[in-house]
Design a protein around this nucleic acid. Structure first.
Lengths: 396, 396
DNA sequence: ATGCTTTAGTTAATAGATTTAACTAAGTGG
DNA sequence: CCACTTAGTTAAATCTATTAACTAAAGCAT
């Protein structure tokens, strides 16, 4: 489960400095308006150390000073915030049914976004198209003068844990694509970190990293779209994204929840993806791949068949949530993906099932909160941008 | 997913020193016979740093020097090994059907072991019994002169991630037991680290930490006994044991693999534990709780009913293995627990199912190796000892 | 208004860890 | 016997964080 941001095994003084700088930056990210004194208390570093590092981060445009924070009967501290004016993070999402790009501030605010609803064909053509979109973004007056910290790209399939290679995207027909290498010639001037990750991993990372308020201890993001997958993020200052030995962590679409059930395209039977996924719902309702799923379902109105299919899919989603709860046990579950557009007929049964059963094992303990992102169009792209920032923060 | 050995967020020079010391120790553990030069190459530390730290570890009895390692055309290096002579690690396992204790060397060699087959009653009585067994061990001439680094205790249920509290052990009837606090008065003189963990977590840790040769990148240990659970370990020098927000990571016994299936004691239906676990097999074959499961099944010989039940349990185990593969994606799976005593009628179908399907998703990539521990009586206790060592290594 | 107290933040000296560079040690091979 | 290679040690240098003393800036009591 090596992570992109795994802590090193051993280190020198420079490593220690990076660690502390990243820790201080992470504290401000999670506690906007924190003062130097707050940071020192939180990180266990001394005021002197914090003061010096903060000074350097102010000069480099990573932090900015804000108003005075009154303290009870003492000198007020100076509030610190992430500097939203000098840097920009780029994120791109290659989805089965479209391409999305975003430009973000260090605080996760989306400055610019673009979306085209064309299905990707070959990696080369996709790279051409994506590069166009990114160039338009890069040249936009809103961000043209900012320093770009890098680009994160997400893909709908598992990525090898050690190298940025998409292993398999069944819904794109791509196998073993080193997409960053395909894209790089199209954007020779785009410097900074270049990252490639699975779409659900990136989305999970973004929800965690740019969480409003103090982030939960760990998050699992469930991405229900054409297929279904999930991403896990955990850690304090250094969010970890476990990928597993083959990048298959969170490939819940192919966990078996109905032995002897329907055949899945993976060759197995009873995979979760045969119950809750875009193509499973299309198959069950006879909706062609060319049609827009949301529109087709809306057109059928209050059809009992539709209701039954959505309810069963929702219950399967609830089962998956419960299984994730008992396997990864995250502090928060986030539901996203295009299937969320299908609304309460799918979402309500999922939540109801999970709510009813999550505490069967440990009675009386805290409930695991579930957040539903009804429109997650740019969630993965923004998450990819978050990963760029986390990477760059270590080098700041 | 905070781990017992989670890297700190920020640190001072002392933290850096501990990190590097632990890294050097970890290198020798994984590469017995490594020279100072090997360690320097592997950790990226300089020869000077390695030399100094090794000197300190030699003096404190953590390392010992061995023979000269010939190098091609240069001065031979001095082989280094974990010092097996000066320290001892204690591990204890509270199982549903017995108590086990072990004493280990730093290299994981079991010096002493004891086993009683009495079911634990109350925490207090269990502590009394366990303390007796540990005192006998501690007074044994083989280890009486060694410095004890601490004691690890395992329990058959989830442990809270931040505090050493057993949340729930359904098969013992224990709820929210701070067992170390119960045990401590019985062993006031036993100093060093005191740790409490879930039995599967500890077993996974031990299989990883004391692995012969270079350990895999991550391990999932599946413990199939009265119930069924699993533990995950990952990391290089600092093995991480993700526990989750409630300590439920790896609670695969309550993942649902058969919606609408049999009722589980947790209140839900179709849990894995209703298919593959000691009590599920007993229920299916009408074997009383007082009988020994292995003996009862052996007594029935080649009974078709028995064969069918074991085969179905094995297939459910294979399903669980596949689901873990697609959720945690470890580099290695280890099967253990008392159910392994039931033999090939159970194990073969599990392995066959997993082998047949593990690569459906990523064709042509490496297979995930599976190791079966046919007698895992002391595996968890030894793993608890391993955790003691990992903890102590940071303070060495 | 003044002074006391409290908290925030900076500065210079100190301590401590790793690195650098030069060295010694101990082999092989021509 | 000498050149070469690799292992390991040593002392000086470098760099980081801490310590301790300081300044800064607020509230509050007198």
């Amino acid at each position: 489960m090596v992570s992109t941001f795994a802590p090193q095994a051993a280190g020198d003084l420079n490593f220690l400095k990076k660690l502390n700088r990243s820790s201080i930056l992470g504290t401000v990210r999670r506690y906007p308006g924190a003062t130097r004194a707050d940071i020192a208390a939180h990180t266990q570093l001394t005021k002197a150390t914090v003061g010096g590092v903060v000074q350097a981060l102010l000069e480099r445009g990573w932090l900015r000073e804000g108003e005075l924070q009154p303290r009870g009967g003492g000198r007020p501290g100076r509030a610190l915030y992430l500097d939203d004016a000098h840097h920009v993070l780029l994120g791109a999402d290659i989805g089965v049914r479209g391409l999305r790009v975003v430009a973000c501030t260090l605080g996760g605010e989306v400055l610019l976004q673009r979306y085209v609803t064309e299905a990707p064909t070959t990696p080369e053509e996709t790279a051409t198209r994506l590069a166009e979109m990114l160039r338009v973004l890069r040249d936009d007056p809103v961000i043209v003068d900012r320093h770009c910290l890098g680009l994160g790209v997400t893909v709908p399939g598992p990525v090898a844990p050690e190298q940025p290679i998409l292993r398999l995207a069944p819904n794109l027909g791509w196998i073993d694509v080193a997409f960053l290498e395909v894209l790089r010639p199209h954007l020779p001037d785009l410097d900074g970190a270049w990252l490639l990750d699975n779409e659900a991993n990136a989305a999970a990372f973004g929800e965690f990293y740019f969480h409003d308020g103090i982030p939960p201890e760990s998050i699992v993001y469930i991405s229900a779209g054409s297929g279904i997958g999930s991403g896990l993020v955990t850690g304090d200052n250094y969010p970890l994204v476990p990928r597993g030995i083959q990048g298959l962590v969170g490939e819940i679409g192919h966990t078996i929840v109905q032995p002897g059930g329907l055949y899945c395209h993976c060759g197995n039977r009873g995979c979760a993806e045969t119950l809750v996924s875009g193509w499973a719902i299309r198959a069950a309702l006879g909706i062609a791949d060319t049609e827009d799923l949301e529109a087709a379902i809306a057109a059928r109105g209050d059809d009992p068949d539709v209701n039954a299919v959505l309810r069963r899919a929702g219950e399967a989603l609830g089962t998956l949530m419960l299984n994730l709860h008992h396997t990864l046990n995250p502090a928060m579950l986030v539901l996203g993906g295009s299937l969320m557009h299908l609304g309460e007929r799918l979402i309500a049964p999922a939540l109801a099932y999970f709510e009813a059963h999550q505490n069967d094992l440990l009675r009386g303990t805290q409930r695991v909160p579930v957040k539903v992102i009804h429109d997650s169009t740019f969630t993965a792209a923004r998450g990819a941008a978050a990963q760029v920032m986390a990477k760059a923060a270590l080098e700041a």
